[in-house]
């Protein structure tokens, strides 16, 4: 039997649907305009040459991607730099964050002050943090060199020599990130009921055993969250590179995103920068998917 025109039930449903779309509209406009469209446009632009003057963009296919691997030693270097940067800063900052959180979670005098001190670097803008560290690293009269001089060591140009530049930048990153991650661990630690520790103690478990067998497994969801954030951060934050080294000397401290910025907005090779961006996106998506699928299975969620 055909429904009569203007069935009140149908009308109601249609209205609800329109209403729902209207509610979604503002957020969707923003997302499409500033996230989805640029992503697709970037992907598309990476297959074309950069338009210069009268010469319009021409289709190149995968030429940009071929160039990265065969004809761009700087790209290979920044990828290696970024890989090393992630490999060192992520475990180090997470490890330090965990130790700091375990420590300031204990009852001790001046706990509030300690927590604040650990968290302060997080509140600072990265550029401000980078400038503070610039003073530490300054050759001659910088804090670190003064300390080295105290022990009779030679003057080190931390940011000016290719051997130390990347490591110096890593130190700033660890210093800044650890406090941030500590807050997540601290929140997770405080959600563990104290009776679990008491029960473990009654059973004769040492503090180490308790942390290893009870606390760490219960912190795994937090660790996954922090890890995802740390990986994204390692590929996304280059403020300190801009402020401290400018990627130098001779790209020794340049990271992938910084190289993309240079390619796109200094050398104005925007379509090659688009191709590089696609690579960065691919890396981030792969890592996130791996983390959520592989690690998730081994994690206990309460």
């Amino acid at each position: 039997m055909a429904r009569p025109v203007g069935d009140p039930c149908m009308d109601r449903r249609l209205l609800t649907t329109i209403y729902a779309w209207l509610l979604l509209l503002p957020a969707m406009v923003l997302l499409v305009a500033f996230t989805h469209y640029p992503t697709v446009a970037t992907f598309w632009a990476s297959f074309f040459s950069t338009a210069r003057g009268r010469r319009p963009a021409s289709f190149l296919g995968l030429d940009h991607y071929r160039r990265m691997i065969t004809d761009d030693p700087v790209f290979l270097q920044v990828v290696w730099n970024n890989f090393l940067y992630a490999l060192v800063t992520i475990p180090l900052s997470i490890g330090i964050a965990l130790v700091m959180a375990l420590w300031v979670n204990e009852r001790l005098a001046g706990r509030g002050f300690l927590r604040m001190a650990y968290f302060t670097p997080t509140v600072l803008p990265m550029v401000a943090a980078a400038n503070i560290w610039l003073f530490f690293y300054t050759p001659g009269f910088g804090l670190l060199n003064q300390i080295i001089a105290l022990f009779g060591g030679p003057d080190v140009n931390f940011l000016g020599s290719p051997e130390t530049a990347l490591w110096s930048v890593m130190a700033v990153s660890v210093w800044k990130e650890a406090g941030f991650f500590m807050i997540f661990y601290l929140a997770a630690l405080q959600s563990i009921p104290p009776s679990l520790k008491e029960a473990a103690k009654l059973e004769g478990a040492s503090d180490f055993h308790y942390v290893r067998r009870i606390v760490l497994p219960l912190l795994m969801p937090t660790t996954l969250f922090v890890l995802v954030n740390a990986v994204i951060g390692a590929f996304r934050v280059v403020d300190h590179i801009v402020a401290m080294t400018g990627g130098g000397p001779s790209n020794a401290s340049s990271l992938l995103l910084f190289y993309i910025y240079e390619t796109g907005f200094k050398f104005w090779d925007t379509s090659y920068a688009a191709a590089l961006t696609v690579v960065l996106l691919a890396v981030l998506i792969t890592v996130s998917v791996l983390q959520v699928t592989v690690l998730d299975k081994r994690i206990h969620y309460r």
């Binding site: 009776s195 009870i214 219960l218």
Partner: peptide, 9 residues
């Protein structure tokens, strides 16, 4: 314990 203090994982 009152809340049993079972290890959830």
């Amino acid at each position: 314990f009152q809340n049993y203090a079972l290890f959830p994982h």
